[in-house]
Simulated assay, not measured.
Amino acid sequence: TGKEIKKARDDFKISSMLEKEKEEILEIISSDDNFYKIEENEKEINIKILEIEEKTLELKKLKKELLNLKKELKKLKI
């Protein structure tokens, strides 16, 4: 009958829409994997930045010590 055909057509449209949404969700999930990889890389980069900042501080301290030693040496030469 016409009602059954219409119902079957509507059911087909709904299942098609659900399938499309399922594909979109799967695409989002797979792109989330990339997001997590990027996030992981970002964490590694931030760790490296912190290491560099620590090394920079150490170098500044050493430079200051060197300058102080230079001053002391100058005093001793006088």
Rank of each mutant, 00 (worst) to 15 (best):
S15Q: 07
D32W: 12
K70A: 15
S16T: 04
R9D: 12
E27R: 04
K63Y: 15
K61G: 07
F35N: 14
E23L: 03
F12V: 06
K75G: 01
I25R: 13
K77I: 01
I38S: 12
K61Q: 11
I78P: 00
K61D: 11
T56N: 04
K20I: 02
G2F: 08
A8V: 02
E54R: 14
K3W: 04
S31R: 08
L76S: 12
L66Q: 11
E65S: 10
E51C: 05
K6P: 00
E44P: 01
K20S: 05
E51H: 06
K74T: 12
L59M: 11
I25Y: 09
N46G: 04
S30Q: 15
L57A: 11
I38N: 11
K64L: 13
E53D: 10
I45C: 10
A8I: 01
E40I: 07
K60A: 08
I25N: 05
R9L: 10
D11I: 02
E4N: 07
I47S: 05
E58M: 14
M17D: 00
I14T: 00
E54Q: 14
I38Q: 11
E53I: 14
E58G: 14
E24V: 01
E53Q: 14
K75W: 03
K64Q: 14
I47L: 09
T56H: 08
T1D: 01
N68Q: 14
Y36K: 15
K20C: 01
K6V: 10
K77S: 06
E42R: 15
E27F: 05
E65D: 13
L73G: 07
L57M: 04
L67P: 02
R9G: 00
K20R: 08
I14D: 01
E54L: 10
N68S: 15
L50W: 03
K22I: 03
K7Y: 02
L62Q: 11
L18Y: 01
K55Y: 07
E21A: 13
I49P: 09
